[in-house]
Design a protein around this nucleic acid. Structure first.
Ligand code: ZN
Ligand code: ZN
Ligand code: ZN
Ligand code: ZN
Lengths: 144, 144
DNA sequence: CTAAACTCTATGGTAACTATAGAGTCAAGC
DNA sequence: GCTTGACTCTATAGTTACCATAGAGTTTAG
């Protein structure tokens, strides 16, 4: 923790404390900075990154978005949109809708995969040898 | 297509035809070779890779495994096992079981994610401004 | 004989980080 | 003042299974 002189005293934290406050790793934070999702406003004399409480909130926002599997590019867009308070939010809705669709597609793909894997698993009589293993035989046959 | 003299005549194909025969890309094939999943038995005088029909089958096996989302490392294991015909196939079963489990886990994760995304989507009254967008507000609030 | 089509190796890129290495900074205790 | 440990810095390599490209050489059909 560092306090600096200015018209108002501000509590600044170093990257390790920011990581603890948000549950992000130190490397992620530096990564987000490189990707322009998070700015480092200030550096200490020894070149350490210093953050204020607004940055803590921004990073929590990013983390929340990541927990929903939004990409860094999408989060960057949301941040930019957030800075245009007067605009309509259709782009936000579209992004979420498209995300929901992607996830639904992926779930279907995985469900198909699951069915195939179960069928494959059933092709082996449990106590078998490699030579007679139904799984390996099935895998050797060209599908469809 | 190339035919060579030997005790038996063998039909050999170059990488482009192997790709067509199996539906794999040329780069994938070279990648599998680098990863030791597929050997190139022969080269032409001009250093082109030449493959026989056994290799076509091996590549089809690999492709079948990949369509089930087995990793290259796992496929490498299966190939090694295949060369021990007398051994029991428990390892094969274990691999498939563990795969099924992973996929089930991932499906559950995605289902949770889907629920969260739907809830998020519902927090926006469609014709809103960025400033009042329920989605952006929700994302700004620390979760849990 | 030449041009198109093919192949070769090597390299860089993808996504969102994690994990090092090697060097510098800072805080506390003696 | 000095040392020690904890922290931070930048830069780089690795993860996965490829795809894309560059620049060069090979093959084949006309
Ligand atoms: Zn998305
Ligand atoms: Zn079996
Ligand atoms: Zn697996
Ligand atoms: Zn909205």
């Amino acid at each position: 923790m560092v306090t600096i002189e200015s018209s108002i005293k501000v509590r600044l934290v170093k990257i390790g404390e920011l990581a603890k406050l948000t549950g992000c790793s130190v490397q992620s934070i530096r990564h987000y900075e490189k990707e322009k999702l998070l700015a480092t406003l200030r550096r200490s004399d020894g070149n350490f990154r210093l953050y204020d409480s607004a940055t803590v909130d921004q990073l929590k926002f990013i983390k929340h978005c990541r927990s929903l599997d939004l990409s860094l590019a999408e989060i960057r867009q949301l941040i930019a949109l957030n800075q245009q308070p007067g605009m309509g939010c259709e782009d936000v809705n579209r992004m979420v809708d498209s995300h929901i669709e992607q996830v639904a597609l992926r779930i279907n793909e995985l469900q198909d995969l699951q069915d195939k894997l179960m069928a494959l698993r059933n092709s082996c009589a449990s106590q078998s040898t490699v030579k007679e293993c139904g799984i390996l035989q099935t895998l050797s046959v060209t599908q469809k």
